[in-house]
Amino acid sequence: MQFAIPNYYTYNTFEFARVLIIFYTLAFMKYLHNIGTYFIMIKDMFRKPTKWSVLKTLILKDIDDLIIGSLGIVAFIAFFVGGVVAIQTSLNISNPLIPKYLVGFATRQSIILEFAPTFISIIMAGKVGSFITSSIGTMRVTEQIDALEVMGINAINYLVFPKFIALTLYPFIISIAMFLGILGGLAACVYGGYGTLEDYIEGVQNDFIPFHMAYAFIKTMVFAFILATIPSFYGYFMKGGALEVGKASTTSFVWTSVVIILVNYLITSLLLG
């Protein structure tokens, strides 16, 4: 539907407002349509399952691509960001009344509560998310998805479900990120001369609340579901050619990140607020 933008001869505030309202209503309807299609895709993901012998191979391949393949970058980032958090905390403590073990305490809290589950998930939205969108999108462009559908295979189950199962191992990555982040903080603190090993370890152990771990892993599981499904949605329902695969990957990264941030706020309000 096209709307003529009124020129300055016929400019009318009410007409302009009407055009704006219709424009935003249509944009909103498009978002609603996408949300509806996304939930139908989620439903279809569990319908008409693929044969187990085939599914098993797909799950193992996706574990290799999505989990094992991400370990290197996650380990690298976690270790050095942990170090930076420790250095920043140490440099910002000038009051002699503040205990020295605060560096270890602050690093642990930052890493466990936010950095490992949320920040790593945003990085994974870029790494894993764009991989999922571009691989499924390329299958759409090259008619491989049509080939699956012609054979009578539930293409959504075949393509998305193994990724969802593979990403149930995502907490494993986050555990490693937590460990290496705290270790990176320790290395930076001790070898950089910002504090002693004893102070750092005391801080890491001090006032530990086990529920914080539960909170972090609940978030991680929800983020894993988002990481598996939103990029798949943008890949599966894309239209066009190679250029659109690139655009779909970018859009997928943006929306996966937005949803992760919003859900993070929601879960934090519910569980810790």
Partner: peptide, 22 residues
């Protein structure tokens, strides 16, 4: 749906771009 799947399993298709799983 089951009968449709049955019919589809009896269909072979050669796509314009071959559509081989890469």
């Amino acid at each position: 749906n089951d009968e449709k799947t049955e019919v589809r399993s009896q269909i072979g298709m050669v796509f314009q771009g071959s559509a081989l799983f890469d």
